[in-house]
Design a protein around this nucleic acid. Structure first.
Length: 219
DNA sequence: GCAAAGATTTGCT
DNA sequence: GCAAATCTTTGCC
């Protein structure tokens, strides 16, 4: 399924469950439904990390489907990708938003921990804590950087097999959305045409957890 | 070696 | 609505 061309694989990932096992009192089980993704391809895609060919960072994108590719953007946010397409072909699907199903309290705790690490002053920390405490469960993982914050995912997981039923972070089967909307990808204005306009963002408009971005529909 | 820019989020004007 | 925060990656000299 994930071995398909990356746009088809991205569609197929919508509705799939993202699962983090609990391994103690400090890290409890979390489950969410993937409701927004973007497809990225190889050298034919001017928006992809693989557009310059194979490098130290993107190497895993050339590997077999189902591996995790986690990278740091803007020096502060980690983003989770699922490697797709056949082994040897660079492709990955960015997980942009997840709808919490189980363990929302744990996700909120994880969000607070990230905010605590980042805050530069007591005032901004208090403000951030109030903001996160007031978030509806559905908004805890409604952005690529928020998915990793809520699920406790970082770059050390790059290369992990998300299809392994025994993995601490894994994908599990979930029901696909009734209707899928497509738009151009977000935040890739640096890319040339036709890559920039390619409609490789896929979302479940019925979900309350999709990200709110300039290129996304309003709710 | 160096400089530039980034698959984002948050807070303030 | 705009710009800062923050650090890694990558192209190029």
């Amino acid at each position: 399924l994930l071995a398909a061309p990356v746009d088809a694989a991205a569609r197929a990932l919508l509705g799939t469950l993202l699962v983090v096992d609990g391994d103690g009192p400090g890290r409890r089980r979390r489950v969410g439904r993937i409701v927004e993704v973007e497809a990225y391809s190889g050298q034919d895609d001017a928006a992809s990390h693989a557009r310059f060919g194979r490098t130290a960072r993107n190497g895993v994108m050339f590997g077999p489907p189902g591996l995790a590719y986690v990278y740091l953007v803007y020096g502060m946010h980690e983003c989770l990708n699922v490697v797709c397409d056949a082994d040897g072909r660079a492709a990955a699907v960015l997980v942009r938003a997840v709808e919490p199903i189980e363990g929302a309290a744990e996700m909120r705790t994880a969000r607070l921990a990230v905010a605590g690490r980042r805050a530069r002053s007591a005032e901004t920390l208090a403000r951030a804590e109030r903001r996160i405490a007031a978030l509806p469960d559905a908004r805890l993982a409604s952005g690529p950087g928020l998915v990793t914050a809520a699920f406790g995912i970082d770059r050390t997981l790059t290369g992990a097999d998300l299809l392994d039923p025994a993995a601490g972070l894994r994908l599990e089967h979930g029901d696909p959305p009734a209707e899928v909307m497509t738009t151009p990808r977000v935040g890739i204005d640096y890319a040339s045409e036709p890559s920039r306009s390619r409609t490789w963002r896929f979302l479940d408009l019925a979900s309350p957890s999709i990200s709110i971005r300039p290129a996304s529909p309003r709710r």
